[in-house]
Simulated scan of single mutants.
Amino acid sequence: MQEHIRQLFSENIQTMIAAGESLSGPLENAAFVIVNNLVSGGKVICVGEGATSALASHFCQLLLDQFETERPCLPALALCNQNNSLQHSHQQDYLARQIKALGQSQDVLLVVSSSGSEPSLIKAVEAALTNDMKIIALTVDGSGELSGLLNQQDVELKVPAHRRARIFECYTFLLHTLCELIDMTLFPQQGDL
């Protein structure tokens, strides 16, 4: 069993190294997109589906509250993809309906996808594009339709992993890194740790 534990740590480390090599540029771009939109009066709207919804909410909370240092609250909103009062026919476009109502062109949609093919997230991205919002998408290798919707102004953080556990570990690290980069850019004296 201990050998298996060591293999899990090794697999995590290898995934993180591969992600660090492929995502340092896109991470920097994502941070600049968010910072520029916040400075322009926009907000970050965060969405996910299922377990990735918890990651989206976590990122939102870190922006609203603080990451590692005290700083002013940053405008962020995590959208809920569950509402029992909706009829079944609207369940897949519930996130999209919220984005159509709340999203504006100076906002950023941060979408966390575990497969790139979740219908509710695809519809959410389509709604964001209709509202001229920029998109930051956390996706995986082989992501389907969601990746194909992104424009040049958007940023895709594509994790080089296939095991669900490694993907979620990497997503958490990417979101924390984004928070740190945002804080360092907006509040440089507080971001220097």
Rank of each mutant, 00 (worst) to 15 (best):
L110R: 02
L109M: 12
S113Y: 05
L110S: 02
S117C: 12
L138K: 03
T139D: 04
G116T: 05
S120C: 14
A128Q: 09
M133G: 06
I122C: 04
E118L: 09
P119Q: 10
L121Y: 06
D132T: 10
K134C: 13
V111Y: 01
G116Q: 05
D141R: 13
I135P: 00
S120Y: 04
S115C: 12
S114Y: 10
N131M: 08
L121M: 02
V111R: 00
V111N: 00
N131E: 12
V108G: 05
S115K: 12
G116H: 07
V108K: 05
V140P: 01
L129Y: 08
L129E: 15
V125G: 03
V125Q: 09
S120V: 11
I122P: 04
L138G: 01
I136P: 01
V140F: 07
V140T: 09
D132C: 11
V140H: 08
G116V: 02
S113V: 03
T130K: 11
L138F: 07
K134E: 05
K123F: 10
V140N: 12
T139I: 01
S113H: 09
S113C: 07
T139L: 09
S117I: 12
P119V: 15
E118K: 10
V111E: 00
S115A: 13
V140E: 12
K123W: 12
P119H: 06
K123H: 07
